[in-house]
């Protein structure tokens, strides 16, 4: 499977949601910049069954080793260690932990620096394109052995986002309502204001009303709702923007047309239609 597109059309949050829900395994390549005038930067993210395993801004599989060198955590026999790690067919981080050269806290710090911080950076980019390719091998030399849930990374990345212009078309409409997609309360750690917005997820109140009730700017409410949508807690429900009784744009001459249709179609009708269409569907 190969999926590609422009970040301006399909945002990083949506990509993460897609890969996590689809439990995809493969390499996500992102070429992005803050503006059209800037040169594109490359980012690579490896996924296994929808979880993020590793991230790098290079494809020579030396990103994690470079981080280890910078922290002087490999000691004097570093080259030999890397060769042995390669032969072990294990993630580099895990191999070093088994050799008691790294502890669990160091691994977590490495993973945070290599993956979480880098991915949060990518959320800031508005220009560029992405490509996800399933036919790829796991980059053991770039892997700490830890993994991250994309939803958590999305939540963190979007919370840190300052410039929302690139996502303006993706934000829920001011006259839309929101509805909960979960049973019970969220298991994700959402902050107090996100919680307040989530409590309105009953499909009835438009975002404009939620903004008034919470005394927050509408734009802020739209951003929070978008975050909650991207992590699968709520769904946008468009509401009708105008009603004929208020501003009649059309004259209904037959009242039957505005009453719901509950009468099922007869079986003979459906059978005849199926036969008729079957004859037309043959080339």
């Amino acid at each position: 499977m190969s999926v590609s597109g422009r970040l301006s059309e399909f945002s990083l949050g949506e990509i993460f949601q897609l890969l996590e829900r689809g439990q995809k395994t493969g390499l996500l390549t992102i070429r992005a910049a803050h503006s059209p005038a800037e040169p594109l930067q490359n980012f690579y993210l490896w996924f296994k069954q929808g979880q993020i395993l590793a991230a790098a801004n290079r494809l020579d599989y030396k990103g994690l080793a470079t981080l280890l060198y910078q922290r002087e955590w490999l000691g004097e026999h570093s080259k030999m260690l890397l060769v042995e790690a390669f032969k072990s067919n294990r993630p580099l981080g895990l191999y070093l932990k088994y050799q008691k050269l790294l502890n669990a806290e160091q691994l977590k710090l490495l993973f945070y620096t290599q993956v979480i911080r880098q991915v949060c950076t990518i959320f800031q980019f508005s220009e560029g394109w992405f490509n996800f390719e399933t036919k790829t091998e796991l980059p053991l030399a770039e892997m700490t052995g830890l993994s991250a849930v994309p939803l958590n990374v999305t939540l963190e990345g979007l919370r840190a986002l300052r410039d929302w212009r690139s996502l303006s078309k993706k934000l829920p409409a001011p006259n839309s309502a929101i509805t909960s997609l979960i049973v019970g309360n969220p298991q994700l750690k959402i902050n107090p204001v996100e919680w307040q917005v989530w409590e309105f997820a009953n499909g009835t109140e438009p975002l404009t009303v939620i903004a008034e009730q919470l005394q927050l700017p509408l734009g802020k409410i739209q951003q929070i709702a978008f975050r909650l949508m991207m992590v699968g807690l709520i769904e946008e429900v468009p509401l009708v923007v105008s009603k004929p009784s208020k501003a009649p744009e059309i004259e209904i001459q037959n009242p039957e047309l505005i009453t719901p249709n509950h009468k099922p179609i007869s079986q003979s009708f459906l059978h005849n239609l199926a036969v008729f269409l079957g004859s037309r569907s043959i080339h």
Binding site: P238, L239, V241, S242, L257, I258, T259, P260, N261
Partner: peptide, 12 residues
């Protein structure tokens, strides 16, 4: 935009 025409079409 989702106006009342959508409602009419879907309900029928």
């Amino acid at each position: 935009r989702f106006d009342f025409m959508w409602n009419i079409l879907i309900q029928k």
